[in-house]
Amino acid sequence: MTAIVSFTGDANPYGGGDPYADYRTAEFPFTQYANLADRQLGAGVIAANDEFFAQRENLLVPERAEFDPEHFGHKGKIMDGWETRRRRGASADHPWPTPEDHDWALVRLGAPGVIRGIVVDTAHFRGNYPQAVSVEATSVAGSPSPEELLSDDVKWTTLVPRTPVGGHAANGFAVAVEQRFTHLRVNQHPDGGIARLRVYGEVVPDPAWLSALGTFDVVALENGGSVLDASNLFYSPATNTIQPGRSRKMDDGWETRRRRDRGNDWIEYRLVSQSQIRAIEIDTAYLKGNSAGWASVSVRDGESSDWREVLPRTRLQPDTNHRFLLPSPAVGTHARVDIYPDGGISRLRLFGSLTEAGSRSLDSRHQELGA
């Protein structure tokens, strides 16, 4: 684990105006990966030892934390995050928390995977943030209860050792542990508040589950697909196109800025493993005056092979789910969607199944990661 940028100490008390004006953040080298703690993938904060001032579920809210200086309740200031009560010592002679005292929250990842980086965001927690944080991870099959996760026979691996953090800041940590994890334990020492938690990494699906499904979406994020690159991310991330479910609003898809040249926009994907693609869906839900005019889909087999067009440039309709059956299975490890000339799509679905080589490769990776 390596801390990328270190923020420590209090932020100044809120003095009015834009509460984010003095927010401390940085560019982190792992945010190109998917957020494995995304509620849309099925992540959840399943337990916490204390949430006196603010609820644990706020940690995974997708929007940035909000701050209302006049919002108070019966327990005090209402914060948009997870906040615990102030810890106290055992007696008047020892009123301070012990070095071991801490609060914790258990997080179920939306999709199991290899974690590349974590952001512990203390936005708006200026004088009430934790002195330090630590993060542990484990891999437990099925749907374990909090009691089962906290039992003595569950092994936890430290991803972020106890590390000082700063208030009103995005505290980022790179992670270099090549294991597949399903759950996290986030600790704040000794107490305080955290606004948001983001867990960036690569989804590693269960090969047995995909084998049982037979035909599935081989580019879907929850099945192990990923975005490698995109021509333009002006309005929204390209990863939105492989999120679960249909788009719920315009910015839940991928939209590019308006082109003023003769080019076109595109996204490149890595499939879960080598696959046979038999059907394609391109959805433009909620993109009504800004959907792509046309789209084509290509695949390639391997990092350096040539792209092969499997869906020629085809007219798209706004706010419509388009379905295409391929005349023969297209075998590949990567896919690319080109849109013309610009605009957006909300979802791309590539339905097919793993090849024998793809199944072997996925099984091997699963075993290498200790799953």
Rank of each mutant, 00 (worst) to 15 (best):
M1Q: 09
V5E: 10
V5D: 03
F7K: 04
F7W: 11
N12E: 15
G15T: 03
G15V: 00
G17N: 04
G17C: 11
D22R: 09
E27Q: 14
F30E: 11
A34E: 07
N35M: 12
L36H: 04
D38Q: 07
D38T: 05
F52N: 08
F53M: 08
L59A: 03
E63L: 09
F67A: 10
E70R: 14
H74Q: 13
H74P: 00
K77E: 03
W82Y: 05
E83R: 10
R88A: 13
G89D: 00
A90E: 10
D93Y: 08
D93C: 00
H94I: 02
H94T: 14
P97K: 08
P97F: 02
P99C: 12
D103E: 13
W104A: 14
V107Q: 04
G110W: 04
G113W: 04
V114Y: 03
R126Q: 11
G127W: 15
G127H: 15
G127S: 12
N128I: 14
Q131I: 12
Q131D: 15
E136F: 03
T138V: 04
S139T: 13
S139Q: 13
S139A: 15
S139C: 15
S143G: 00
S145G: 12
P146E: 02
P146F: 05
E147I: 12
E147W: 09
E147S: 15
L149E: 11
L149D: 07
D152P: 02
D153H: 14
T157E: 14
R162T: 10
V165T: 09
G166N: 06
G172P: 09
V175P: 06
E178W: 00
L184D: 05
V186T: 14
I194P: 07
L197A: 01
Y200N: 05
Y200K: 04
P205E: 06
D206F: 05
L210F: 01
S211N: 09
S211W: 02
V218R: 13
V219D: 09
G224F: 08
S226W: 06
L228M: 10
L233H: 10
Y235G: 02
S236A: 15
N240T: 04
G245H: 01
G245T: 06
M250Y: 01
W254M: 06
T256H: 11
R257G: 10
R260H: 08
D261I: 11
N264Y: 14
D265M: 01
W266N: 07
I267W: 11
E268Y: 01
E268G: 01
R270L: 02
R270W: 03
Q274S: 12
I277E: 02
A279D: 02
I282P: 02
A285Y: 11
L287T: 02
G289L: 02
S291F: 13
S291K: 02
A292N: 06
E303Q: 14
S304N: 15
D306R: 14
R313V: 07
T314M: 01
D319A: 05
T320Y: 12
L326E: 08
L326M: 09
L326P: 08
P327H: 12
G332K: 12
G332A: 08
T333H: 13
T333S: 15
D338P: 04
D338G: 00
I339H: 04
Y340C: 05
G343F: 01
S346F: 00
S346M: 03
R347V: 01
L350S: 07
F351M: 14
S353C: 06
S353I: 00
L354P: 07
T355M: 05
A357G: 02
S361Q: 10
L362N: 01
S364V: 03
R365S: 13
L369F: 08
